[in-house]
Simulated scan of single mutants.
Amino acid sequence: MTIHPQTIQIFLPSGDPQGIREATLITRTIRTIEIPRSRLDTFLRMSESSQVGIYFLFGENDQTGQPRAYIGQTGNLGTRLKQHNEKKDFWNRAIVALSLTHSLTVAHAHFLEWLAIKKTTEAERYELDNQTLGTYPHTPAPMEAECREIFETIDTLLTTLGFPLFAPPIKTTHIFSEPTENIYSIEEKDLSNTFYCRTNGVDGQARYTEEGLVILKGSFGRLQPCDGFSRHNTGYVAKRQALIDQGILKPDADRLVFTKDMVFKSPSPAAVFLLGRAANGWTEWKDAQGRTLADVMKRNENSKDRNE
C-alpha cells in the first residue's frame, strides 16, 4: 500500500457507529460496506446487495483467539452473504467492496479475490478459512492494472476500518536463519525499537508497534513451563498448545520456536509465552541499552515525578 495523505469518508446510515459503516476515498469509485452479522438483514434490503463485488468475512479462531478471515467474490453480494450466514460459524462482521459506478465485472472480482488471498497469505496476519488459495486468473493487462489500483483502495479502506488484512505484523525487514547446530538466530537490518527478552533457555526479540508487541520469527522460549504455572494458568496452556498444533510454535529439543511473527496486544502475554511463568512484560522486555519497555515508553515518568 502506497503511503500518502488521503481523505476518507465514513458514513453511518443508521447513525450507530457499531452498525453498518460505509467507507470511501473521496477521489475513488470503490466503496466498502462493513456489515455486523446481526445487521445482515438490513444490508440485504439495500440496493448494493445485488451488485458484483469482493467480500471479506472476519472473526477469530475459538481456540487461539487468532483473527480469522474468509475471502470471496460473487455476482450477487446479498445472496452469497446469506449463504455464508447459514453455513459458516466463525465470522461476526463482513465487509463488501463494490463500485459506485457499477463498473466491476465478475472478471474484476475473480482477479481481486485471487490477489487478496495471495496478499493475505503472504502477510500471515490472519488465518484464512478458504480451503484453496486459487490460481492466477488470465486477465488482460489493462484490466489487471485497473484491478491493482482498485485493490490498493480496498487495502486502505479495510485498514482504516480496523482490518489490516494485507499488512505484515511488522514492516521492518528481518531475516530468519535456519538452525545450524540447533541454534536459531535473527539477523536484524534495523535494530531501532527492538526489544529483547533473554534468560536461560529464552531468546526473544520483538518490535513495539501501533498494534502491540510483535515477537519476531525465530525467537524461542522454554518448552516446559515453570513448576505449578500450568496448573494455575490453564487458558495459557491451552492457547500455547493450539499454536503448537497450528505450527506457529515449533517444539525443538527443550525450546519452543516462533515460526512466524506474532502480534500480542499486551507485552506481558508475549513474555509469558517465552518464559513459561508469570511475567510483567513492561519490565521483562528491554532494549539494547538495557532500558525496560516501560522506561522507553515513559510509563514511569509520573511516578518518578511524584517521588521527587
Rank of each mutant, 00 (worst) to 15 (best):
T74K: 04
G204R: 00
A253W: 09
T283V: 15
D16M: 06
G78H: 02
H110S: 15
T2Y: 12
N76Y: 11
T29K: 13
T173F: 08
G290M: 13
P225H: 07
T7G: 10
T42D: 10
F220K: 04
E146L: 13
F90V: 07
L100P: 02
R148M: 08
A167P: 00
Q73M: 12
T172K: 14
G162M: 07
I33D: 00
W114V: 04
D287G: 08
E152D: 13
K250M: 13
I186A: 06
T24V: 08
L191R: 08
G134L: 15
I30P: 01
K286N: 10
I175N: 01
L223C: 13
R45H: 12
E187V: 09
P164T: 11
E181N: 06
E86N: 11
T283G: 08
E22M: 06
R240V: 08
R198I: 13
T74Q: 05
E284F: 01
T132W: 01
I35T: 02
N233C: 09
Y70N: 05
A242Q: 09
G221C: 13
T259N: 09
P5F: 03
E124T: 07
D245P: 14
L81R: 10
I244Y: 04
L40V: 11
D190S: 11
R148F: 00
P168A: 14
T173N: 10
I35P: 03
L223Q: 15
A242M: 09
H110V: 15
M262H: 12
L274H: 03
Y236A: 12
G204M: 01
P269I: 08
L165P: 01
A97K: 02
D203T: 09
I10V: 13
K87A: 11
Q131C: 07
C226M: 15
M1S: 12
R31V: 02
F264N: 06
R306V: 13
H84S: 03
S99M: 04
R28Y: 04
K260H: 07
V96F: 00
R291K: 15
E211M: 09
W282F: 15
D203S: 15
E301M: 07
R255T: 06
K304N: 10
R222Y: 06
Q83K: 09
T2V: 04
S50Q: 03
L44E: 07
A206F: 06
F163S: 05
T159W: 01
N302R: 05
T74D: 08
K189H: 12
F273T: 00
G78S: 08
I35N: 02
L213E: 03
L57N: 01
T2W: 10
N307I: 15
A279E: 15
N182V: 00
T194D: 08
H174S: 00
S268R: 06
S219P: 11
A288F: 02
I183K: 06
G65K: 00
S230V: 10
G65L: 00
